[in-house]
Nucleic acid binder design. Structure first.
Lengths: 346, 346
DNA sequence: GTAATTAAAGTAAACGGTGACTTTCTGCGA
DNA sequence: TCGCAGAAAGTCACCGTTTACTTTAATTAC
């Protein structure tokens, strides 16, 4: 049906190889022949067959991306940025959602391996590194996004979560909060790092988390954490020393937390300030606009894509590279207690 | 590197074809042989080479999806639902964003055609149908999502936009609004259908749109329409007969509109009620929780996936099928003026 | 006891490209 | 005049499967 190199070759009385060389801009082709071939290619709207090409070259010009949840704006943004960047270079992107389920994630990764994608990018929900040994076995290069593993020497692109935690917590301190609580996320590097940053920031002001002031999102069935945040905040509201500021693992959990706080009849930020993480697009439109740490998801995506392309082009394995993207705090009403006209760039 | 059929065949003293038959559960294989082969496959963690298989079968077990914007929750949800559904059947999904740009969309589609995906699913930003002739030429089946074309007899899965418009507009009328305005979207079927529904609903109450009460989102650079909605609402606020209700093309534009209304010092819904479209996940957390028409994006995705799989399995072209997904209105504070305890299911 | 049938394997030829080598021809310097 | 270099093309084998057809041996029918 679709035109093949052979059709063009026959039409023009050339060999298939010659046509193939034109296709790939091989030097040893005469100018006249090149033009003739290109003309015919256009006429027939020729599209090379990727399957055939992959079979012989061993490369697919396809990257695989696995994220925990495509609906989560943070990951959606990363996916979009990667897609935009790789497209320019002729690479396509196989995307799948793991639903934050390690088992499902392994299935997805296996599928990508079977399809011999050139590079796998994964924001992983694993708690162990076992699964990555599987990838390494197949000699497929991979890049970790956002979430890293201490005992895994792999490519990584994301933020330094300890800084994120410190940024948010210090800000709350500067706004006058002295009983700062933390709603922590699941047992992945991001949550651990942010918790650590939170603790360090408190320590730097000679404070410690008060009893019951670190609560976990839990896995209350919701993917992103609105519900988890809501319930966690309820716990915090019932704590013996009620917090006056909360640093939330991510924006969805902050939304849930804010809902709980408002329902309890408290004011944000006067009674309780809230800071989230992710700086999702709708922060400005919320009941109380949400202060949030921007992790530069678009930059993460772009850098990850660049790295992936670089790796894909090399045939030899490269030394794992870690790229930290800088994060910044975007202050909005949910945490602005001290008058400070400077830092609002919503 | 990776194991091939040949490796297994050599190990077991069989021919490649026999092993291939086991792989595909071909009947004429002895039970003993089948077991031996399967055992060896597991040991070697054998994964069939999709490129080789595609080359000979002409099928890729890959679907292509093009959406205007992966960040838009409506499309993200569709993408996720399609991915979830197709994964179960061993199909993978190539996803790309067209950025609402018809030219870019054509590029993406060409890329998918070159990769010989089995079915293309597209929420199109085209204004003409030309591009689809291209797809038809390659004999690749395709499905339109959400946006349709009157002069194109193609598979379609989405809502009936006229009903959407009527649903929203009638609701505003029932809430006591008599000067109902509409912020319409770009020149695609969804916007046209919703506008028509809006007009029809007004007509059914013997009303007509007042002068200046239908304004366009415009293409103010933002993808989804927050900014466009903001500016459109400003125009409406300046109209000679100020509206008391606005039906917005989608949720992002409704967000923008609400911002403009609140900035003008008006109350929602008392002075101006607002209804959006899409029922995105964060509606409940907004300054004023947003009433919105739920288009069942998850259902759209699921149905589209089912249809795509059905088409992919047939070798012969099938008659185009249109599936309308039913929409429903979710009433929240932004439009609740008459006391009505029944219809809140947020 | 022989022919027809069936089960369980194997053979050979694609599928549409690419990579490594080889051939052919022309022009040029010694 | 010969040899050689370089440009421009062509040959051949292979990538890992599947498909259609053939072979072999065992089983059944008569």
């Amino acid at each position: 049906m679709a035109a093949r190199l052979k059709d063009i070759a026959d039409d023009l009385g050339l060999s298939v190889v010659t046509v193939s060389k034109v296709l790939r801009n091989h030097p040893d082709i005469g100018e006249a022949t090149r033009k003739r071939v290109q003309k015919r290619m256009r006429e027939l709207n020729y599209q090379p067959n990727f399957a055939a090409r992959s079979l012989v070259t061993g490369r697919t010009w396809t990257l695989g991306l696995v994220v925990p949840d495509l609906l989560h704006p943070f990951f959606a943004e990363i996916a979009k940025a990667i897609s935009t960047e790789t497209r320019k270079h002729g690479y396509s992107l196989l995307i799948s959602s793991s639903d934050e389920d390690p088992e499902l994630e392994i299935e997805e990764i296996k599928q990508l391996l079977a399809r011999r994608v050139d590079v796998i990018l994964v924001a992983s929900a694993q708690s162990s590194v076992e699964c990555f040994r599987l990838i390494e076995e197949q000699k497929t290069p991979y890049i970790l996004l956002d979430r890293r593993f201490d005992d895994l020497d792999a490519n990584f692109v994301g933020v330094d979560d300890a800084s994120v935690g410190m940024l948010a917590t210090s800000h709350l301190y500067e706004q006058g909060c002295r009983r700062i609580a933390h709603i922590r996320g699941p047992n992945v590097s991001t949550a651990i790092g942010r918790l650590e940053g939170y603790t360090r920031a408190l320590a730097s002001h000679n404070l410690n988390p008060l009893p019951g002031h670190v609560v976990s999102l839990g896995s209350s069935g919701d993917q992103r954490g609105e519900k988890g945040g809501y319930e966690a905040a309820k716990q915090l509201l019932a704590a013996e020393a009620r917090p006056d500021g909360i640093f939330c693992f991510n924006d969805p959990s902050a939304l849930g937390a804010m809902r709980a706080i408002l329902e309890a009849g408290l004011r944000i930020p006067e009674d309780m300030a809230v800071v989230g993480c992710g700086n999702f697009s709708y922060s400005d439109f919320l009941r109380v606009p949400l202060s949030s740490v921007d992790q530069g998801s678009e930059t993460i995506g772009k850098r990850a894509a660049d790295l992936a392309l670089k790796i894909a082009r090399k045939k030899t394995p490269t030394k794992p590279k870690t790229e930290y993207i800088s994060s910044r705090l975007v202050v909005r009403a949910s945490s602005r207690r001290a008058p400070d006209p400077s830092s609002d760039d919503s």
